[in-house]
Design a protein around this nucleic acid. Structure first.
Lengths: 147, 147
DNA sequence: ATAATTAAGGACAAATTTATCCTTAATTAT
DNA sequence: ATAATTAAGGATAAATTTGTCCTTAATTAT
């Protein structure tokens, strides 16, 4: 559904949201290991997310790392997609037609409409914080390891 | 959601399903024009779909072209995804985790589960024929042209 | 039979995505 | 102040996807 870059962005952001505090800010090595992603590539992605501190914030130097402000934690998950320039996936026509709309529907349009609405609602309603909570308390995983 | 190749595959198959008959088999030039896709690339894709006549059938020579057997028209839309090797998109974890499951859910898993079920159901229930009917009678479009 | 037409398929090219490595800049601890 | 640590950013490479072009093979019409 999403590019690998966006998948890493989602996993990294959720991880950072749950693990960061004033005393502790996970660094690149820790994050990449925790979410099963290539470190350097993930670093590039976090650079996108830290632009203007839109989603993620960072500090350099010893004990530096990444964190989310309380404000950022309340952002909808969709904002991560937006920062990655991939939010249009939610609205996109299944057949890839630019002109597809209620007025000019593709053959899948009416069938897919309801699902699309739920998908948009999910990404706009769920906050980054709520997913971090699932990770912390719900036993949810962010990597592919067995144990 | 899907690759361009799969989008073209879906559009082309629906078009062929609706336009082909014993007397008339659309050719590559007509198909590519009708669905707004690059002709040579679409030709490659139709080669995949015609392998073993799984989805699409073809005849070469004058008045040749592509068509769907009645049996093929009854196939679920999902079979097109399968022929393109892209059906796992339907089952895939939103965060891209291979191990994501009911037992080891990612933070999005429970939220996305219902939507995923509907998506799978849509692609498994809808037949190629039913989409061709939408194209024929429902005024549905397969290209990006204004009029 | 021959020529015309059309899909099949191979080779290759362009564009995009994914990924790595190395240097620079900022910050902190000593 | 200095050295150590860590993110930022540039350059580049590998892999994949998207796309084109040309030749071959099959089929049909004449």
């Amino acid at each position: 559904m999403f590019s690998k870059a966006t998948e890493y962005a989602l996993r990294a952001t959720i991880y950072i949201a749950q693990r960061s505090s004033d005393e502790n800010k996970p660094g690149m090595a820790e994050i990449a290991k925790a979410i099963d992603s290539p470190q350097s590539f993930t670093a590039k992605i976090l650079q996108l997310l830290t632009r203007n501190n839109r989603i993620v914030s960072s500090v350099r130097g010893p004990n530096g790392g990444f964190f989310l402000t309380d404000k950022a934690k309340k952002l909808p998950v969709r904002s991560i997609l937006e920062a990655m320039g991939e939010d249009e996936v939610l609205e996109k026509c299944v057949l890839g037609l630019k002109q597809c709309s209620e007025a000019k529907p593709c053959p899948m349009h009416t069938n897919y409409k309801l699902i699309k609405g739920q998908l948009i609602d999910l990404f706009e309603t769920k906050s980054i914080q709520s997913l971090a909570d699932e990770f912390e308390n719900g036993g949810a995983k962010l990597n592919n390891r067995i144990k």
